[in-house]
Amino acid sequence: MKNTLSQTINNEKIMQKQSKRNKTNINKIISITFISLMALIVYLPTLLLIVYSFTPSKTIGSWSGFSFELYTQMFQDAEIMTALLNTLIVGFVASLLAGIIGVITAIGIYSMKKTGRRLIDGITQITMVNADIVTAAAFMMFFILIRFIPDGYATLILAHTVICTPYVIMSVLPKLSQLDPNVYEAGLDLGATPFKTLCKVMIPQLMPAILSGFALAFTISLDDFTISTFVSSSVDTIPQYLYNKLKFKGVMPVLRALSTLILVVAFIILITINLVQNRKSKQKTLF
């Protein structure tokens, strides 16, 4: 009697567990379906863009054979190539400067007292939270008032450096806390100057974080349209070029090849940073 009772209780428990498992399974199936559907919707425009970059047809929807014609067209287009070069120059110089300033600042902030930290935190927040158009307008007025900075590369690089630096600081700061604080002191004790200690001791240890901060700054520079339009009228970057063509011109098939190229390069950079970060620190990091 006793035995059967405990058995039925056991059976009930197993049944409960099974129904619970079934329920979580159904939940999971619903989740996966929903996630796949959303991913499809999110990537449908991009997929269409990539697929139709391999056909020279004027409109989307009519396939006129597989070819690299749009790509050869793109590489022969002087305007596109200039814009591409400008984007790369500005992005590279600005993110290099932002990288250097960001790393030095992060080391400074890390050993600061609360009040100083709060001040710099506030400033970086202003840069990151402020709407692009307000930052852009403020830069424009600043450059108009201070006439000696020539319009073009100088204004673009300056503005991009300022908006990118906070992101470098944000990516280096967490890694600093994982370092041994005594190493810096040891460098000083052994007779190195603060600058030398920085270059020979701190920076090598922070290299992975610095590289991902640099890549991050680079993508932000590539991403920027609003600020570039406001601060530079003589030098066009890719986003400015795209805007002008999309606003004022109708169909331009060559843009599909250009967009695909940028997309692929950007994805490779982003995935690399994410995988490197993910491998270095066990902690799951995301943009």
Partner: peptide, 24 residues
């Protein structure tokens, strides 16, 4: 001090973030 490393950025951001907003 190590915290002095943050001075250049503080000056840069005052000139290029705060001042432009004030000009605006």
């Amino acid at each position: 001090k190590k915290s002095h490393f943050a001075f250049p950025y503080t000056i840069i951001s005052i000139i290029f973030v705060i001042v432009p907003l004030l000009i605006l």
